[in-house]
Design a protein around this nucleic acid. Sequence first.
RNA 1: GGAGAGGUGGCUGAGCGGUUGAAAGCGCUGGUCUCGAAAACCAGUGUGCCUUCGGGUACCCAGGGUUCGAAUCCCUGCCUCUCCGCCA
Length: 421
Amino acid sequence: MLDMRLIRENPELVKQGLANKYDTSDLDKIVTLDEKRREIIRQVEKLKGQRNKASAEIAQKKKAGESADEAIAAMRQVGQDIAALDDDLREIDQELQTAMSWLPNLPHDDVPVGKDESANRFVREWGEKPQKDFKVLPHWEIGESLGILDLEAAARLSGSGFYFLKGLGARLERALYNYMLDMHVADGFLECSVPVMVTTETLFGTGQLPKLAEDMYKTERDDLYLIPTAEVSLTNVYRGEIIDHTMLPMYMVAYTPCFRREAGAAGKDTRGMIRVHQFTKVELVKIVRPEKSLEELESLLTQAEKVLQGLKLPYRVMVLATGDLSFASAKTYDLELYAAGVDRYLEISSVSTFDDFQARRMNCRFRDADGKIHFPYTLNGSGLALARLIPAILENYQNADGSVTIPDVLRPYMGGADKIG
RNA sequence: GGAGAGGUGGCUGAGCGGUUGAAAGCGCUGGUCUCGAAAACCAGUGUGCCUUCGGGUACCCAGGGUUCGAAUCCCUGCCUCUCCGCCA
């Protein structure tokens, strides 16, 4: 949620930010609603003041045994006026709230302005693309031939867009998330195991709702959504609370399945594990003091990079253009992992800062040392997505004989195995 | 899933139609005292909104309703606890 005060006092700045994000919300309407809202509040509170005064007098008279009939009769109309104004206010509040809830976060000044991913800016790269003297098979082929990935079985069970790992394939997934969790925990992240079904309010808090309703799975009977990312469960942990400043910064990590309908992505990446409805991911979330958020963003990026460096997988860092930023994000780095079989870069991590946008939606605040209350800043980053990591390993670590070498750091997690096949 | 009890400030806990934003205790902050600390004593200690910056107004799980007036009465929902059932 954006700060209404900022919109009121500096609408042009907000408009420019929205324009850079290619958002078409009607800000003038919001400004008008806000003015109307405050006008009604002024009126109704004046009346309520009168009523409170009169009520006290009525109470006095009754206590003294005098008749208060006249005063009561006089207040009847005031009561009705208040009720009518309260109705108006409720309506306007609702309208304003709805309009506000659709406003995306504003991008930072240093985010490149551009319509889509073609405007994303290269930041740096790490590692070498693997040089192979044979044709590297895409992960769905090598996975099938090694008997560790059974996409047919997944389709039998759930239709398209799912994967079924077995044997060392499933073991590889387990090795990866144990490796990542151990690394992040060692680096100070609090390990969490969290609900993957959450309420509307929770999804509103991180900004998935109302805009992305179509992209998520919902259990209609119970009104719960399956999380598209553990960001949702972790970030909302203190929704509606005022926490103490000594609890900041909070670093959290969770391994969960993630569920995405991929409603708008029909026909894209239909083969293999690259774009599926259910995948697992290790997610990192930080809740920090506002003034620390920029350095925390950089260190979160570094944390995600550390996983890829440990696995010796080549990647590049991109900073997303304004038009490619997610609804809630103020600045996002993407980590793109080169996969030799599909011969392209795969987005494997998205590291973002949300400033106070999510904290406002969650109404999560912290009490500072001086007693003042502020919104903390929230950040998150994948650390990392398993359904992209596994293909990359199957492709980049592929050998001419059709086997796949297991990265050194994973071997202790693989029962000592050094290759698959 | 069935039966019952209950949701009040950071916590415990009173209040059950009229100066109650809310007693009391604990905690916390500041002060006195002390070489220092503890104890004791004194003072302070919720959040949002509106504001002509004097104040005003709202909030006692959430949303409706009754009333001149609701923390208090009524309805709906959510959550917690106890017992039973089911269950990894």
